[in-house]
Amino acid sequence: MKENGHYIDKNETVIKIRDLYKSFGDKHVLQGIDLDVFKGENVVVLGRSGTGKSVLIKIIIGLLKPDAGTVNVLGEEVDQLRDADLRALRLKVGFSFQSSALYDSMTVGENLAFPLKRNNRSLTRDQIRKTIDVVLDAIGLPDTINQYPSELSGGQKKRIGIGRTLILRPEIMLYDEPTAGLDPITCMELNKLINAVKERFNTSSIIITHDLTCAKEVGDRVAVMDEGRFVRQGTFDEVFTEKEGLIKSFYDYNFIQ
């Protein structure tokens, strides 16, 4: 099993989801999701657009409430937490948005400083600057500190979005389509970054994607989602040995076309 030279602790679950349901009106999005993420593991969630992948990780971070089922993150039941405790948990979970969601009225430096300052009011200007430099170095964009998001390319925005969550030193990273809409070379760079983040910051992650190259590069385990359920789980090779139905369509699209 590919573990990116890293030890996965199968005895320690950082995210444990059981029998999760979520509907919007009469639109049933999640219909019985079970998922475990182990410490040090990168789990890739594959699925077509609109199957509820984003909804799933928004429930994990408490942006949406589940209708039924349990979501346990780092030992806490997310939907039962009071505001203060939820906030404490969110410090340990990084969330990288599909749209990057950078604060467009702020420079890159201010984007990174914003969560840091607000969650640690005793930091000095120097300490903040140093932390920002470390993160910008880790995401490979040291020269963008004074630029505004509108001046950045799509790939750079994604990196800064990842950097903005790394600055709080999360134990878990949730990536929503980190490579969507990017050219193949930038995709590869982001895959490398996701693996580097795991090494350097010791994170466990869920990576949502519909890009098989990404899944293969960064995933220790792949879970395929269809119509609100996981239909297949395993290593990349396990999932894609038998190519039929949805799996085949995915595979053909990504590797043959």
Binding site: L91, V93, F95, F97, D104, F114, P115, R118, N119, T165
Partner: peptide, 21 residues
């Protein structure tokens, strides 16, 4: 525009209270 580009959610997930800010 902060809402529809998920900037408000982004504050929420980095443990910031966007309502207060």
């Amino acid at each position: 525009s902060m809402k529809v580009t998920e900037q408000i959610d982004a504050m929420e997930v980095s443990a910031i209270n966007p309502f207060r800010y």
